[in-house]
Amino acid sequence: MSVYSIKDLEHLSGIKAHTIRIWEQRYELFSPQRTATNIRFYSDEDLKLILNIASLKDHGIKISKIVAMPQEVLEEEVKKIALERRSHQDQISALTMAMIDLDEEQFSSILDDCTKLLGFEKAMMEIIYPFMRRIGILWLTNSINPAQEHFISHLVRQKLIVATDNAEINQSGPMFLLFLPEGELHELGLLFANFLLRSKGAKTIFFGQTVPLDALEEVYHKLNPEFLITSLTTAPETKEVQKYINKLGTKFKNCQVYVTGRKVIGQEIEYPKNVGLLNQFEDLIQLVEQIVQKVD
């Protein structure tokens, strides 16, 4: 069972922790357990309940009416809203509950519906990426079970690979090599970047996880790509990041290198002339559209 702090409930539901505490006292919604140091924590069932309440409240139902509903009525009302899926928040909440229950069929159904409605790129940008960002924060704070995180990552990874395979390869497009540093395993962001690049008309070669720079340098001299993209989420170690950035600038000085990830975004990093920072996926989309437009 996963455990959640009240801040986790706030983060996932959008309902302020102060409001949750008031509801807890006034309506006896939860019976949180306590750690040995007397800190409250909440269960999967508590999280599902607050997500259901948030969904109904967002659609105009008063909290006093919601808490008076029998459990089966509350769940039925939420199902009606979920079927309509009128907002991104509804879809993100539905994905969260599918994650909690490890319900692959439900999770895939929601992803497929979002893709049909918005197209794959918009579904990723507006629903899946915000959802994964939330889950990533919970994973870093040890609030969700690692099995839940792997379950979600695997399903999203499958969707990304299929979508990328379906994107036509432009052999005459600008070439991008995509790779992750040694020790870096978080590839979902890079997989999405690979899809975006292909769908916008770039030629991509995806090397994936934990690539030694010496091995990459050999391929680089053979292929002569115009661009390299990498993401630094957990590797290299923080004290080694600046040194790694400098190596990228030196080893691949005849192409433009772009870096992203938690290790560099918002950090005080000095970048060589041929190394740039991508703060978000929108930056990558804008960059590729400009590059492909110039080539055309």
Rank of each mutant, 00 (worst) to 15 (best):
F107Y: 03
E126M: 08
G119T: 05
D90R: 02
S109G: 15
S109A: 13
I137V: 13
R86K: 15
F120Y: 02
R134W: 01
Q91M: 14
C114H: 05
M69D: 04
A68M: 10
P130H: 05
F131T: 00
A68P: 07
S87R: 14
K79Q: 14
P130C: 09
T96Y: 03
M124L: 07
S143W: 06
T96H: 04
E126S: 09
A68W: 10
E84K: 15
Q71G: 10
D103E: 05
G136I: 00
S93N: 15
N142V: 08
I66A: 05
M97H: 01
Q89F: 07
T141D: 12
I81H: 07
I92N: 02
H88S: 14
E72T: 14
D90C: 02
A123W: 00
R85A: 15
E72D: 12
R85E: 15
M69G: 02
D113V: 10
R86L: 13
D90H: 04
L95P: 01
V67Q: 10
I110L: 06
N142R: 11
I127H: 00
S87Q: 12
L118N: 09
L74W: 04
T141N: 14
A68N: 10
Y129K: 14
I100V: 11
W139A: 03
Q71P: 01
E105A: 13
A123H: 00
I144W: 03
D101Q: 12
L138D: 03
M69Y: 08
E121A: 13
E121F: 00
E84L: 15
H88Q: 14
E121L: 04
K116M: 10
Q89V: 03
I144N: 02
W139H: 06
D103Q: 06
F107E: 01
E104N: 08
F131E: 02
A94E: 08
Q106H: 08
V67N: 06
M125H: 02
M132S: 09
F131Q: 01
I81E: 04
E75C: 11
T96M: 09
P70T: 09
P70Q: 09
M99F: 04
R85Q: 15
I144K: 03
D90Q: 05
K116Q: 11
L111D: 08
D103C: 06
S93M: 10
A68D: 10
P70L: 07
L138V: 00
V73F: 03
E126Q: 11
F131S: 03
M124E: 03
Y129S: 15
S93I: 07
K80M: 10
F131P: 02
L95E: 01
E84Q: 14
E84F: 08
E76W: 11
D90I: 09
M69S: 06
M97W: 00
P70F: 04
L95F: 01
S143K: 04
